[in-house]
């Protein structure tokens, strides 16, 4: 392609100054960008208002698109359901029969549990769901793992609330707008969740790696062994996440720090429940 010779401004002072000002502004863009970056590094929630204003516009669009996607995705499902319903019915009846004994045992255990807790005088904190919404979009181009849910301040969603999916912990709310809220997913490289092993209650920390999996780090300094298939649930430490929510399963054995796969693979087909923080968030000093 031949070069465009429009760089010449001729004798028009106005044109010369205009071109010069354009380049000055271009360099100013770099400076402003660097300044904004420094500000956001020191105070990440500083620009939450701008971000959530944009999300207020994009979230309804995403919601409509997600609904359309669900309708399309449900068509092949409906067809396969139609043909597979008998076979699946039989399989489910078998499964029900096989699990009847386990269910009875679980009922006995649950009853025992209630009775013993009453004996001990334990008081459980009730979990209070705030709203059930859908994850509608995510930051698919950035290394950070945020998602937007289509419920916000109007529905009572506030920053700091945990978000739960059908399979396990999804993340927590970091920013809220009137009709949308931003969720920090557990796989985000800056997300940290206190967990414990289901087998023996060993405490650990589940930190996001940024590549779709989690790091399970032992909080003991001693040599803690992790086995493949170890299950980790939230411990309730810190008071943000309610205890006992499934978080991750260890994928390869190791000591002290191992890789784990999160239970919840959030998509737009599932609901996400926003709950109030397990313990009330203390008021910030000076506010």
């Amino acid at each position: 392609m031949a070069p465009v010779r429009d760089r010449r401004t001729g004798f028009s002072r106005r044109r010369q100054y205009g071109v010069f000002l354009g380049y000055v502004l271009a360099v100013a863009g770099v400076v402003v960008g660097a300044a904004l970056l420094v500000l956001s590094a020191f105070d990440p929630p500083l620009f939450a208002g701008f971000r959530m204003a944009a999300a207020t516009v994009t979230t309804p669009v995403s919601s409509v698109l997600a609904t359309g996607g669900r309708v399309i995705a449900s068509i092949p499902e409906a067809i396969s359901d139609h043909f597979a319903v008998r076979a699946r019915n039989g399989a489910m009846a078998e499964q029900l029969k096989a699990q009847a004994a386990v269910l009875t045992r679980a009922r006995v255990i649950a009853y025992d549990n209630r009775r013993l807790r009453a004996l001990l005088g334990l008081r459980d904190r009730a979990r209070t769901p705030v709203v059930t919404a859908r994850l509608v979009s995510s930051t698919a181009t950035s290394g950070r793992r945020f998602a937007l849910i289509n419920a916000g301040r109007f529905e009572g969603v506030r920053p700091g609330m945990p978000v739960l999916g059908p399979a396990g912990l999804v993340g927590r709310i970091v920013e809220t707008g009137p009709n949308a809220a931003r969720v920090l997913l557990v796989v985000d490289p800056e997300s940290i969740v206190p967990v414990r092993r289901t087998r023996d209650g060993a405490p650990a920390i589940a930190a996001g790696r940024g590549d779709g999996s989690l790091d399970i780090r032992s909080v003991y300094t001693t040599n803690v062994r992790f086995r493949t298939g170890d299950l980790f649930v939230t411990s309730g430490t810190g008071g943000l996440y309610p205890p006992g929510i499934p978080v991750a399963r260890v994928t390869r054995p190791g000591a002290d720090t191992v890789e784990a796969r999160p239970f919840s693979t959030p998509d737009t087909l599932d609901f996400a429940t926003v709950e109030a923080p397990f313990m009330p968030i203390p008021a910030e000093p000076g506010r």
């Binding site: 979230t59 997600a66 979009s137 995510s138 698919a140 181009t141 290394g143 793992r145 779709g212």
Partner: peptide, 12 residues
């Protein structure tokens, strides 16, 4: 980024 996809890895 408003397309309704919940990406667990950044590939878009």
């Amino acid at each position: 980024t408003a397309v309704p996809v919940i990406a667990t890895v950044p590939l878009m």
